[in-house]
Nucleic acid binder design. Structure first.
Length: 217
DNA sequence: GGCCAGGACACCA
DNA sequence: TGGTGTCATGGC
């Protein structure tokens, strides 16, 4: 572990001890219909398929996860949580289904574009690169890293509002640059998908608990 | 009624 | 390059 930030690892161990593992290692059935990279369901990220992770990553932008769950629930109820269905359905119909997630007009347009790209990645049988994701309208760095880590098991540490808050609270780092956080975490931690998922999940749960405590004051 | 929540992008100086 | 406005719902 030479060269790695011991403090970040110690904080990880503390969170793990306090909250327990957020992500189990159990391999789930490969339930993707199409060819592609093997899909093992991540337990912490609530999704039944790779495409559901992709949809969740986009819909979660600047909104509460409960609103995302409602939108995804609507898609499931309409039997429309499927890339081909989303590509082919009318935009106004998609808007109605994802309305609870907020910014629904913008997200419906972007979701259709993302679903089209998803089909390309699946049909060629290889995961997207980060640059390919970033070239898609509505996919920024956080969304791209969430998709790579949770949908494709590619080690990119996800920097979200909770991660920034965690770094600030523990006086680790404070910056406006996304890449500053990325390089901090990825230099300090061993490059490991399970570790990245678990650490991010623990940070999110830490952030939610901190938020609840703050509101209770 | 106001604030916040697992962002991204366009526009302007 | 940095700041600001826009997109919008739902829970507390």
């Amino acid at each position: 572990m030479a060269g790695k930030d011991g403090r970040l690892l110690r904080l990880y161990e503390e969170l793990l001890e306090q909250s327990g593992p957020q992500e189990c290692n159990k391999a789930w059935p490969r339930n993707e219909k199409r060819a592609g990279v093997a899909w093992a369901k991540p337990c912490w990220w609530p999704a039944d398929s790779r495409f559901e992770v992709v949809v969740g990553a986009l819909l979660a932008q600047n909104t509460n996860w409960k609103n995302v769950e409602k939108a995804i629930g609507n898609l499931k109820d309409a039997d429309s949580l499927d890339a081909e269905r989303i590509v082919s359905m009318r935009k106004c119909s998609l808007e109605k289904l994802i309305r609870p997630s907020g910014f629904y007009r913008q997200k419906a347009k972007r979701l259709k574009t993302l679903a089209k790209s998803f089909l390309v990645f699946e049909s060629r049988g290889s995961p997207p690169s980060r640059d390919e994701l970033l070239a898609i309208d509505g996919v920024g760095k956080e969304t791209a890293d969430s998709i790579l880590l949770y949908a494709y098991d590619i080690p990119h540490f996800v920097i979200d509002a909770y991660t920034r808050r965690f770094c600030k609270c523990h006086s680790l780092l404070e910056s406006k640059e996304y890449d500053d956080y990325t390089s901090y975490f990825e230099k300090a931690l061993p490059r490991d998908v399970a570790l990245y998922k678990e650490y991010h999940a623990l940070i999110v749960e830490w952030g939610k608990a901190a938020g609840r405590m703050k509101r209770a004051d």
